[in-house]
């Protein structure tokens, strides 16, 4: 269960907290609570597990954003059972290939990707900077990422 759920909770944390360490804390905390509930027989229907994890994730994100820490008791009880979520648990990237793949994009595509993902800006914010419409930025962004993914998987050559 841990290996299945941990990457998903980590992503949830990254999206809401924008920080690897906080996402790792969230993952640890949510999965500890989930184990507690499972062992206590409080989650009887397996199909409800995702809903439970989502609910816990939302609650813990709010807690983390408030700066509170409420995991001491669960950590004391179950911490030894859990592998620690690392800071670099995401997929590994071939940065040389990514550099080459970025070079292959059109100028507008590369600009939109850099402006968007450097500071995680919405289509509206990037559109304002570049004098485009938000809809146009979304189209360019989608096309650029689709090309980049193809290039990274080797379906489109990098050079």
């Amino acid at each position: 269960m841990y290996s299945r759920l941990a990457p998903r909770v980590r992503l949830y944390g990254l999206r809401h907290l924008r920080d690897e360490q906080s996402a790792a804390d969230l993952t640890q905390q949510v999965l500890l609570m989930t184990i507690e509930r499972l062992r206590g027989g409080k989650i009887r229907e397996p199909e409800r597990l995702a809903s439970f994890v989502l609910g816990m994730s939302r609650m813990v994100v709010l807690d983390l954003k408030r700066g509170s820490r409420r995991r001491a008791r669960a950590l004391e009880q179950f911490a030894d059972d859990l592998p620690r979520v690392g800071l670099a648990d995401g997929p590994r990237l071939d940065t040389e290939r990514l550099t080459a793949c970025l070079e292959r994009l059109g100028e507008r595509e590369r600009s939109v990707l850099v402006l968007t993902f450097h500071s995680e800006r919405t289509a509206f914010e990037v559109a304002q900077e570049l004098g485009l419409t938000a809809a146009n930025v979304r189209v360019i962004r989608h096309r650029a990422l689709a090309r980049l993914r193809l290039c990274m998987t080797g379906e489109e050559p990098a050079s």
Partner: peptide
């Protein structure tokens, strides 16, 4: 798929910070 996408966007950010991405940007950027 989401995890792969997030890794890709993080890669773009890292390469931009290393100065190895040629791009037309803005003064605000």
């Amino acid at each position: 798929r989401m995890g792969d996408l997030v890794a890709l966007t993080g890669g773009v950010r890292s390469l931009a910070n290393l100065g190895v991405v040629r791009a037309v940007v803005t003064g605000a950027f």
